[in-house]
């Protein structure tokens, strides 16, 4: 177990070091997030939505911004390995699950950084009143994990395809649609201060995350080697 963790940490540190030096994924995620947030805040702003509609519409917009920003950069960790021809050597050197775990943690860290910057900005710019910040934090954490584990698996599948940019979004969308619906409901419940709604969402999202984790652990070694 310790050996597995040490090897996965090596993959994560390598990806993080590469990313800090090239900033490809960070720039893609950040630029997309800021552009979408600016567009949404200028066109809709904090006052153009009726008070009663605010919790739902602002929750939906928040997750749309996070989703599209994630689509812009979370495939990079695998696509880059194929583009720079480092994938064959990685396949021959590391255990497939070590690669999966390292890259999953890297994507989760990217998502966490994105959310840490984006969500407070969104709350301020859109005047999003959240009755239960702790519940929102829990929804963001559970949602971020499930979004990360799903996109990591899809990125591994599309990395060797020719039209991978389009494929990443096309394959991710049907897998993430149920998650998005749950997350919008959960964020709305957090905004309205409804503990039952948040609990239901967390149950559903954590279950989805668990299913995607198990599916990834089973499928990834096959996808990685074939």
């Amino acid at each position: 177990m310790w050996r597995f963790l040490a090897e996965a940490a090596a993959v994560f540190v390598k990806d993080l070091r590469s990313e800090f030096r090239t900033k490809v994924a960070l720039n893609a995620l950040g630029l997309f997030a800021v552009t979408t947030l600016a567009a949404v805040s200028y066109t809709i702003g904090p006052y153009r939505i009726a008070e009663a509609d605010r919790p739902f519409l602002l929750s939906a917009l928040l997750w749309i911004v996070i989703f599209f920003a994630a689509m812009a950069g979370l495939d990079r960790s695998f696509v880059k390995e194929e583009d720079t021809h480092t994938a064959p050597l990685l396949r021959l050197s590391a255990d497939p699950l070590v690669v999966w775990a390292g890259k999953l943690v890297f994507n989760l860290v990217l998502l966490a950084v994105l959310m840490a910057i984006l969500v407070p900005l969104y709350i301020v710019l859109m005047g999003f009143h959240v009755s239960s910040p702790l519940a929102l934090f829990a929804v963001l954490m559970a949602g971020g994990y499930t979004l990360g584990v799903t996109t990591t698996m899809v990125a591994a599948i599309i990395a060797r395809a020719m039209t991978r940019g389009a494929l990443f979004s096309v394959l991710s969308l049907p897998l993430l649609l149920p998650l998005m619906i749950f997350l919008i409901q959960g964020t709305r419940a957090a905004a309205e201060g409804s503990p039952d709604g948040v609990t239901q969402t967390l149950r559903a999202v954590i279950s989805l995350g668990g299913v995607m984790t198990v599916v990834s652990v089973i499928l990834f070694p096959v996808v990685w080697h074939e």
């Binding site: 070091r17 720079t84 021809h85």
Partner: peptide, 10 residues
Amino acid sequence: APSMGLYEEL
């Protein structure tokens, strides 16, 4: 092998 690359930024 020529087809196997190393990490250029490291």
